[in-house]
Simulated scan of single mutants.
Amino acid sequence: MTENIVWHHQKVTRADRAAPKNQSPCLLWFTGLSGSGKSTIANALDVALYDRGYHTFLLDGDNVRHGLNKDLGFSDDDRIENIRRIGEVSKLFTDAGLIVLSAFISPFTSDRRLVRNLFPAGEFIEVFMDTPLETCERRDPKGLYEKARAGKIKHFTGIDSPYEVPERPEVRLDTSTMSVEECVERLIRYLLDRQLIFSPPQSLQR
C-alpha cells in the first residue's frame, strides 16, 4: 500500500555527491554461472578502483544472503525477489555517488532488465562473465556442481535451472582465456572511455 506515501526529494543530488569523487555514479552488474569469475573479478576491480582513489562498494551474492536476503531460498520466485532487492540497494548506493559492483548469477533476462530500468541510461553496465560451463564446473570452487550433479542441490543454474545469456552486455569477459589483470584493465578502460571515472588528483592516489 503506497497511496499515503509521498516521495521526499533531497536537495543534495547524486551528481553533487559524485562530483568531489571524480566519478559518475554507476552500477557494474556482474552476471554469469557459478565459478565464472564474477566475485573474483569484481573484487579485483574494487581494489584497483580503490587504490586509484575512487569511491566504490561491492555487493556479493553470498554475502547478501547472509543478511538482507537470508529469508530467501533459490526457487524462481525467491531468485526474482533477491535480484529486485539488490537492484534497489544498488540504486541507493549510486544515489550516494558511488560506483557499485554487484556480483550475482542473476540468471533471468527479465530480472536484469528490471534492475537496468532503475538506472538512467548509461549507468547500468552489464558485465557478462562468458566463461564456458565446462570451465566453471571444472573449477567448482564451492563444490556446488558436484552436489547438483548428485541431486543434492535443486534448481542449480546451469544444471537443472536455466541461465539466460545476455544478448547485448556492455562488457563480455571469459576468464577461461583472460587473466584477472586483463579483465580489470578492460573494465577500467570501459569506465574511462564512457567518462564514468576521471583521473583523480595525485593527492588521492593511495
Rank of each mutant, 00 (worst) to 15 (best):
G73V: 07
D60P: 09
L59I: 15
S75W: 07
R84E: 02
K147D: 13
R84Q: 04
D130M: 06
E123M: 12
I83K: 10
E137H: 14
E146N: 11
G87K: 07
S90G: 14
L98P: 00
K142F: 08
A148K: 05
G32H: 06
D77R: 13
T135K: 06
S75F: 07
L59N: 11
W29G: 04
C136T: 12
C136Y: 02
R84D: 05
D51N: 11
I86M: 15
S102V: 14
A103I: 10
K147W: 07
L68T: 13
G97V: 04
E137I: 04
N82C: 10
L58C: 12
G143K: 14
T109N: 12
T94C: 10
N22T: 10
I86L: 13
N117C: 05
V115H: 13
P141R: 14
R85P: 02
E126Q: 07
V89W: 04
I86R: 01
C136P: 08
K91M: 15
P25I: 12
D78P: 03
S90F: 07
K70L: 01
A121R: 08
L92K: 11
F124M: 08
G53A: 03
W29M: 10
I99L: 14
E88S: 09
L45S: 05
R52F: 00
V47M: 09
L144Y: 00
K70P: 01
L92I: 14
F108Q: 08
A44H: 03
K147V: 13
D62S: 06
G53H: 04
N43S: 12
L68F: 11
D46W: 00
R113C: 00
D95P: 00
C136I: 09
A150I: 07
R113F: 02
D77F: 04
G32V: 08
S34P: 06
C26Y: 08
S75M: 06
R85H: 00
D140W: 05
F93E: 07
A48W: 05
A18F: 09
Q23S: 09
A103S: 15
N117V: 12
S75V: 00
V64W: 02
